[in-house]
C-alpha cells in the first residue's frame, strides 16, 4: 500500500493545460502523483520522451491534447495519436503498454481532467511499481526496451507513421485511400520486425553470435533469424565476423 506512483503528464498548452488550470480554479481534487510537463502541442511528444521516462523508472505516462479537430496547430493532435498508437504497439512487447495513455481534454473540461488523472493514477496504482524501477543494467527488460526505443526512431516506422494520415485519409500518391486494416497489418509486422532486428543488433554489439545462438536468445525460429540477418547485412548494419567450423558468426557495426 506504500506504493506512490510517479506519473508524468505531457500536456498541450492550449487545451489540456488550460483544462488542468480549470480543474485548479474549480478546486477539483485529484491524486497528487502527476508531474505535468507543458508542451506547446501534443504533436511535440517524441516517442523517445516516453522511453526516457519509462527507463528512468516512471510508473506511468499520460499524454493529453486537444480533442480531434480542435488542435491549435490544426493537425498536431492527429500526429500525436499516430505516434501514440505506434508506442502502444511497441510497448506491448515488453508488457508496458498499459502504463501509457492518450486522452483528449479541452479547456473547459476541468472535471474531465481530474477524472482522467484520477483514473489513470488508479490504474497505475493497481499495476504496481514499474518493473524498471529497480533494475540492473543487464536485465532483459531494459535490453528489450532499448531495442524498441531504437526501432521507434527508425526511419521505417517514422515514415509509416508520418505518412499514415495522408495514406489513409487524404489519398496516397495514386490518389487512393489505402485500406485501414491492411495498413495496420503492415504496420504491426513492421513494428515486430524492427523490434527483432534491433534486438539482434544489440546482441551483436555485445558479442559475436551465430544464427542458432540468436535463435535461442530471441526464441525465434532460425530460418526467420536468417531472414533478418540477410536484411541487416543488406542494410549495412551488421557484418560477418568469422566462420567457426560450419557456422558463421556475426557482429554489429559500431555505428549501427
Amino acid at each position: 500500500m506504500d506504493f506512490k506512483p510517479k506519473i508524468i503528464g505531457f500536456l498541450c498548452n492550449w487545451c489540456s493545460y488550460a483544462g488542468a488550470d480549470l480543474a485548479g480554479v474549480s478546486r477539483i481534487q485529484y491524486p497528487p502523483n502527476i508531474r505535468i510537463i507543458r508542451l506547446m502541442c501534443s504533436g511535440r511528444v517524441e516517442p523517445y520522451f516516453i522511453f526516457e521516462a519509462l527507463k528512468s523508472g516512471i510508473d506511468g505516462v499520460i499524454i493529453m491534447g486537444c480533442h480531434p479537430g480542435e488542435c491549435h496547430y490544426m493537425t498536431g493532435n492527429y500526429e500525436a495519436e499516430m505516434k501514440y498508437q505506434l508506442l502502444k504497439s511497441l510497448l506491448t512487447y515488453v508488457d508496458l503498454d498499459n502504463r501509457i495513455s492518450l486522452e483528449w481534454v479541452s479547456a473547459s473540461e476541468g472535471i474531465r481532467f481530474a477524472e482522467v488523472v484520477t483514473n489513470f493514477t488508479n490504474s497505475i496504482q493497481k499495476l504496481g511499481p514499474s518493473p524498471l524501477k529497480k533494475i540492473d543494467k543487464d536485465s532483459e527488460l531494459l535490453f528489450n526496451l532499448n531495442a524498441l526505443q531504437i526501432a521507434a526512431n527508425d526511419y521505417r516506422l517514422r515514415a509509416l507513421i508520418g505518412r499514415k494520415r495522408k495514406i489513409l485519409d487524404e489519398g496516397n500518391v495514386y490518389n487512393k485511400k489505402y485500406p485501414k486494416e491492411k495498413f495496420e497489418d503492415l504496420q504491426e509486422t513492421a513494428i515486430y520486425d524492427e523490434y527483432q532486428k534491433n534486438r539482434i543488433i544489440l546482441y551483436l554489439k555485445k558479442e559475436n553470435l551465430s544464427v542458432k545462438d540468436l535463435s535461442e536468445r530471441l526464441s525465434i525460429a532460425p530460418n526467420k533469424i536468417l531472414e533478418y540477418i540477410v536484411d541487416l547485412r543488406g542494410e549495412g548494419l551488421i557484418d560477418l565476423k568469422d566462420i567457426q567450423e560450419l557456422t558463421p558468426y556475426y557482429t554489429a557495426k559500431q555505428e549501427a
Binding site: M40, G76, K83
Partner: peptide, 22 residues
C-alpha cells in the same frame, strides 16, 4: 508557429524546437 510536430517526426533528431528542446 513552434508546435514541434516536425521535430518529433524527424528520424535523425536533426530538427529541434527552440525553447522546448529534446
Amino acid at each position: 508557429k513552434g508546435c514541434g510536430a516536425c521535430s518529433s517526426s524527424c528520424r535523425g533528431s536533426a530538427i529541434d524546437l527552440l525553447g522546448f528542446t529534446n
